[in-house]
Amino acid sequence: MMEKMIFGRYIPADSIVHRMDPRAKLIFVFAFIAIIFLADNAWAYGIAAIYTLASIWMSGITVRFLISGLKPVMILIAFTFILQIFFAREGRVVLDLGFLTIYEEGIRQAFMISTRFLLLVFMTSLLTLTTTPISITDGLESLLNPLKKIKFPAHELALMMSIALRFIPTLMDETDKIMKAQMARGSDMSSGPLKDRIKAVVPLMIPLFVNAFKRAEDLATAMEVRGYRGGEGRTKYRLLNWHIRDTMALFTLIILAGILSWMRFWL
């Protein structure tokens, strides 16, 4: 069950998205996150959705795969959708069941918020699916470099991030393994009353944490033994190259931002 999760994984392939400069992709994703908040009506979301689908299409990853790999996130989105429907109290009443009423505004809000959430998740997954953790780190460090002047720990931050990303799949595999081991000892996480199910999580979480701490310690030792001393005076083996396609990608994003703000402020 865990092995299907694609959150934080990298899929090696050779597409234009894979080949993009990680700096461009990082700027792209962060800018997209900001831009999506410009959308405030169905048409705007439609355009943003088409833009997102086009980006996914260019990476050679199928939407079906994304959805199946992000199942837990999908459940969360469905959950917010339902909450939104029930909580908004504006506009025309669409359905009145006595104990609960659904308003037009509720449906509208629910659609918009879950679409926004979905597009954000797709775009950020696209970043991690098409970029190796190491290039994300390199990109981030290079983007944050100017901040080093004000003593901002850019290198350390990038390193922390890359380690976290690197260990997501490892932790997933481990969760799967420990879950199986406890299931073999009769633990049952998928049936029975809620109280028992919550209790059944303890035998999973404790070994997981213990292992994570142990691994962190081992990693720290291994780095120290190999003479790691931070980013100072470190040169790079992989050099980042900014191509015309990177400029183009950001350019299309500016156009999207333009269209969305036009729709929001002038239409």
Partner: peptide, 9 residues
């Protein structure tokens, strides 16, 4: 399991 010590909690 292989490396069963991981299941202690």
């Amino acid at each position: 399991f292989q490396f069963p010590e991981q299941q202690l909690f």
